[in-house]
Design a protein around this nucleic acid. Sequence first.
DNA 1: CGCGCGATTGAGTAATTTCAAATCTAGTGG
DNA 2: CCACTAGATTTGAAATTACTCAATCGCGCG
Lengths: 191, 191
Amino acid sequence: MDAKELLKQHLAKTVSLSDDEFDYFFSHFQPHAYKKGQVIIGAGDKVDCEYFVLEGCVKTFHLTDDLKMFILQFAMPTWWASDYNALYSGQRATVSVDCITDVELLCLTSADREKLCREIHAVEHFFRWRTNKGFVAAHKRLLSLMSTDAKHRYEELLRQYPQLYNFVPKNQIAAYLGVSRETLSRLYHAR
Amino acid sequence: MDAKELLKQHLAKTVSLSDDEFDYFFSHFQPHAYKKGQVIIGAGDKVDCEYFVLEGCVKTFHLTDDLKMFILQFAMPTWWASDYNALYSGQRATVSVDCITDVELLCLTSADREKLCREIHAVEHFFRWRTNKGFVAAHKRLLSLMSTDAKHRYEELLRQYPQLYNFVPKNQIAAYLGVSRETLSRLYHAR
DNA sequence: CGCGCGATTGAGTAATTTCAAATCTAGTGG
DNA sequence: CCACTAGATTTGAAATTACTCAATCGCGCG
């Protein structure tokens, strides 16, 4: 499916736009392609775009001073990714985004998003709902992180994204679950 | 300050409504008062309101099967609270809300929120930004929980809400930080 | 004064991390 | 087709950290 159609169907789940409105909306997105391993947003960058994933998988993550990685999100097609804190506050990125596989995505600047939200009520509605879903997901993740053990969180992750297991290195899955790769490994052999 | 003025100023930070629009908006809120310890949303309840805190402090939390408590949020005046997952999905509450102090708040049903968002573009804009802020805060919390130790998280919490220390029992602060009350206590004496 | 609740302290235990070594795997070039 | 290498994964063992459970402390209130 082409980029335009994918985005159109994604919007259609929440709002209905006329063809003209959607064409106008779509005209603000820039397509980009990246190779596996490429960095889209690096720590310290200025951030003025958010990204709609068309193909492939990116991760959003934070590196601590002692180079430990913590992964906030794996973003698959039709998911959005950025450092939203940096994007909305104007501060430099502390959350990075890079490519787990070759990736195609659409880029939307924050200025254009705000303009579109002002101009088209339905677009504002769409972005409210998108953020709602993200907010609820983040709270679920918080609870799961605080109240259940790594084994349970691992099963939950695989239930949500069965594909991940195939192409994401285990140390990155561990960085998402919040345990060391050794502990993750031990959860699934012996004990 | 009275309820109406507090909500008006809260909105004014994000959007500008005419007096008539605001009066209409405000007419959908129900004021309620609760005593310290009262439960506003209990596990298993149907949820159809969200709450704007006018006075006092509520907490949103989850109880596990073995009765361990994990606190998602302390909500002070001008903060919003609810089980947003239940509110948006129609499922029963898994997150409870109760009162740490005597509390006054305004209640808005989900149906009314959606109606107001449809009718007044600026209201939709307001709620998008409110959720944005919540989303960013939840992500910061996730990172802080994964990448920094309890001592650091405690200092962060006190920097954000210096008042909390005075009226929130330490075991609830521990439940927010994700450690046992004994561990929290040890962080601040001996070692 | 004594009761009761929250907070602290101590001791033993369980879980996770760290560091190091061993093993496995996919891709490369001979 | 096989040997080789780099990276990823697993395993082992010691050390650290946080937890649990129990006992004690401190303070406000009847």
